[in-house]
Design a binder for these strands. Structure first.
Length: 434
RNA sequence: GGACAGGUGGCCGAGUGGUUUAAGGCAGCGGUCUUGAAAACCGCCGUGGGUGAAAGCUCACCGUGAGUUCGAAUCUCACCCUGUCCGCCA
């Protein structure tokens, strides 16, 4: 969410930022917002004069009645007779204008950071050369992960379809255990090596939380909604970013305790609206998948370096697993709604003969904090404004499992277990057909 | 799910229609005193908005929303949350 005062003070920079995002009529949108803002402030100014008069008169009425001066009281009552209706009208107007302005602001995406490359789509993403790691292994006729998993008899899409429909999967035996092992390994790395605090959060959240991180109001089609008999619905989280970031919603944090770093292993639920026909085979794109998420809450000064640090933490997992990967800076047209800068980490999948996204690390700046009303105060107790929030996958567990299957596959159909995961697999060194 | 009791600033807590401009206390910050500290004393001490160059003036906020009233922390309605007990339950 943008601060309307920031737009007021820097209208042109705001328009340029939105234009870089590819918004067609950025200038018109900005001017419309400023017009609404002006109308609201005019109403406020007028209303407050009336409220001040009413407050004065009411106080005098009270004093007159205390002195038993009924004549004076009656005179004052007559004076403010018409005021009540005007004030109620003004208050109604204020509510309407505030809601309209908030609704308009709520659907405007974040402004890209200055160092984000311009571009319309993923073809214009820019590789971060110094972050590239490893080389694709020279495998002879590599299989895709679902061929491997089904060959092992431990990955079952047909039964998942019977029970839940398309885009679900059953894992069994060692593959089920491997998912758990991957998650434990990731959490242990992030907590012990990078100072993240492990959290086990709710996976059903209220609309307010979805608004705070920016999924609502614009992207409800991508979410699963849980209707309740009466009252507000719940939403299934599409990522643990939602409960981890909203953990600090409506709070004023102390600067000394920042940055806060949280990590969580949760299932994630996505309706995948609009993804029909994409990645229909295998575990790449599911309605339910598990992910280890990283979230940092920082001061504005810290957020850029925290972004690099978070990306380091996510990459560290792939390095320990010795999986070849590269990192790209998303261009303005490919970034998510709330991000001002995003690194995608793409892992090599031999079966697909391609790099595929396995993590996305974003610095959202003050965008989510303004939606959540999360601020911080300095050592003197002075409120310094919104915090910055960052989130990243550290990593997508399902896709990590896919990457291990495809990169560690053996000619005989078995899969070697990476050394760092063997302690989590009871010392096993490979997964064989069950 | 049912019954009862509650929700007031960072914390505790007074306030049941009009000098409340939310008392008082604790914690915190600054100062006096002191070699230093403690004690004592003095001062400061919520958030957001409007207006203004600033000082200031002003509005809103006592769980949330709506309402009654010239005037609401206080009265009405709905909802949310917490506690206790009962029921159910991994």
């Amino acid at each position: 969410m943008h601060d309307i005062r920031a737009i007021r003070d820097g209208r042109d920079a705001f328009v340029r930022g939105l234009a870089r995002r590819g918004l067609a009529n950025a200038a018109a949108a900005a001017d419309d917002l400023l017009e609404q803002d002006k109308a609201l402030r005019d109403v406020l100014t007028k209303l407050q004069i009336q409220q001040a008069r009413r407050n004065d008169a009411s106080k005098l009425i009270g004093q007159a009645k205390a002195k038993k001066d009924e004549a004076q009281a009656a005179a004052l009552l007559a004076e403010v007779a018409g005021l009540k209706e005007d004030i109620q009208k003004g208050e109604a107007q204020q509510r309407e204008l505030e809601e309209a302005l908030k609704a308009a602001l709520a659907v405007i995406p974040n402004i890209p950071a200055a160092d984000v490359p311009d571009g319309a789509d993923e073809k214009h993403n820019v590789p971060v050369e110094k972050r590239a790691y490893g080389k694709p292994p020279g495998l002879n006729a590599p299989k895709q992960h679902f061929e491997i998993g089904e060959g092992l008899g431990q990955m079952d899409f047909e039964r998942a379809a019977k029970v839940s429909g398309a885009r679900f999967v059953y894992l069994k035996g060692d593959l089920a255990r491997l998912e758990r092992a991957i998650a434990s390994f990731m959490l242990d790395t992030h907590t012990s090596q990078f100072g993240y605090t492990e959290v086990s959060p709710p996976v059903l959240v209220k609309s307010n939380a979805m608004f705070g991180t920016g999924q609502l109001p614009k992207f409800s089609d991508d979410l699963f909604r849980i209707a309740t008999d009466e009252g507000d619905p719940f939403w299934l989280i599409p990522t643990a970013e939602v409960p981890l970031t909203n953990y600090v919603a409506d709070e004023i944090l102390n600067e000394a305790e920042l940055p806060l770093r949280y990590t969580a292993f949760t299932p994630c639920f996505r309706a995948e609206a609009g993804a029909a026909g994409r990645d229909t085979r295998g575990m790449i794109r599911m309605h339910q998948f598990s992910k280890v998420e990283l979230v940092s809450i920082t001061t504005p000064d810290q957020s850029a370096s925290e972004h690099e640090r978070m990306t380091d933490a996510a990459q560290e997992i792939l390095k320990k697993l010795d999986l070849a990967h590269r990192v790209v800076t998303l261009c303005t047209g490919d970034m998510g709604f709330g991000a001002q800068k995003t690194y995608d980490i793409e892992v090599w999948l031999p079966g697909q003969n391609a790099y595929r996204e396995i993590s996305s690390c974003s610095n959202c700046g003050p965008f989510q904090a303004l939606r959540m009303q999360t601020r911080f105060r300095n050592a003197e107790g002075k409120v310094k404004g919104p915090v910055h929030t960052l989130n990243g996958s550290g990593l997508a567990v399902g896709r990590t499992l896919v990457a291990i299957l495809e990169n560690y596959q053996q000619g005989d159909g078995s899969v070697a277990i990476p050394a760092v995961l063997q302690p989590y697999m009871g010392g096993k060194t490979k997964i064989e057909k069950s």
